[in-house]
Design a protein around this nucleic acid. Structure first.
Lengths: 142, 142
DNA sequence: CCGTATCCAACAGGATACTG
DNA sequence: CAGTATCCTGTTGGATACGG
C-alpha cells in the first residue's frame, strides 16, 4: 500500500526538477539545496524555529529549557544567524535584569511550514525506515 | 505583501505542533527533527536524492558527474546510508566491467517530495533572505 | 539574565593509493 | 567501473570562565 506515490505524480515531479536544474546554471552546481543545508543543516536551527513556532514570542532562557541539550553558546550562535537571515526578530528590553524576546518573522513562519511538513513525513516514515535499517543490518552482519 | 501567512493559518500550525510535542514524550527531547537532521543534515544526502529523482535509475559514476564536487568516498558512504534506510535501492550486475545502478524507492520518492517543497521555498525566499542579511551586516558593522 | 571569549575534543569529509 | 583503506585537516560545537 505504500507503493503509491502515484507514477504520474512522480513523473510530474521529475519534470519540475528538470526545469529547476536545466533552467538554472545547469551543471555548474547551482542549487538551493546547498544553500538550505548551509543555513539549516546545522544541529540546532530547525529545532529553534520549531520551538519558536510552538512557543510564540519567547525569552532566551525559556527557549533554552525547551531545546533539550543545547548549550548557551550554541543557542546564541543559532539565534544570531537566524536573526541575520530575517527568520526571527530579536527585541531587547532595557531592564535589570535584562530581558530579550525572540519571535518568528513571517519569513520564518513560512519556513516553519516547510519544516513542519518534513517533520510530518519523518514521523510517518520513521517505522518504515527503522525496519529497513534492521533488515539491512541483518543482511550485512556476518 | 509577504506579511501573509494568514494569522489563523499560523495558529492552526501552532496547535498541531503543540499536539506533536505534548502528545509525544513531552519535554524529554523526542523529536523527529533530530532524526531528520541526523540522516539528511549531512552535506550530500539531499543532493543525492534530488539527483536520483531527476535522473531516475542511475549508475555510480553517472550520478557522480551530476553531483558537483562530491568525492568518490563520500558518494559511496552517502549511497550506503540511504540504502540502509530503505530510501534507495542498489542493484549490482555481474559483468566486467562491473555495473551498479541506484534508484529511489517509493519511500525515497516520498522524501523527495518533501525536499522539493523545501527547495521551492528556499528558491522563492532566497532574495528576501539575502536582503535581510545585507541589512543586518550593514547595521552591525562599525 | 543574557550574553561573549577562549580553549579543546570529536568527527565529517577531502586526497590519495590500492583492489576485484 | 565501482568501490576500500588510510591518512590527515578544518570545522562544529561542548565546557568553562568571565562581563554588562
Amino acid at each position: 500500500m505504500n507503493i503509491t506515490i502515484a507514477e504520474n505524480q512522480m513523473i510530474e515531479l521529475q519534470k519540475k526538477i528538470a526545469v529547476f536544474f536545466e533552467g538554472g546554471e545547469t551543471n555548474h552546481g547551482f542549487c538551493p539545496i546547498k544553500d538550505i543545508l548551509d543555513r539549516f543543516g546545522d544541529k540546532w536551527s530547525l529545532l529553534a524555529i520549531l520551538n519558536l513556532g510552538y512557543l510564540g514570542r519567547t525569552r532566551f532562557n525559556e527557549l533554552r529549557k525547551h531545546i533539550a541539550g543545547i548549550s548557551q553558546r550554541m543557542l546564541t550562535v543559532t539565534l544570531r544567524s537566524l536573526e541575520r537571515d530575517g527568520l526571527i526578530s530579536r527585541q531587547v528590553f532595557a531592564e535589570v535584569p535584562p530581558r530579550v524576546e525572540y519571535e518568528l518573522t513571517s519569513l520564518g513562519a513560512g519556513l516553519l511550514l516547510q519544516i513542519w511538513n518534513l517533520a510530518q513525513w519523518a514521523a510517518q516514515s520513521m517505522d518504515e525506515i527503522l525496519e529497513a535499517r534492521k533488515r539491512y543490518d541483518m543482511a550485512h552482519a556476518e
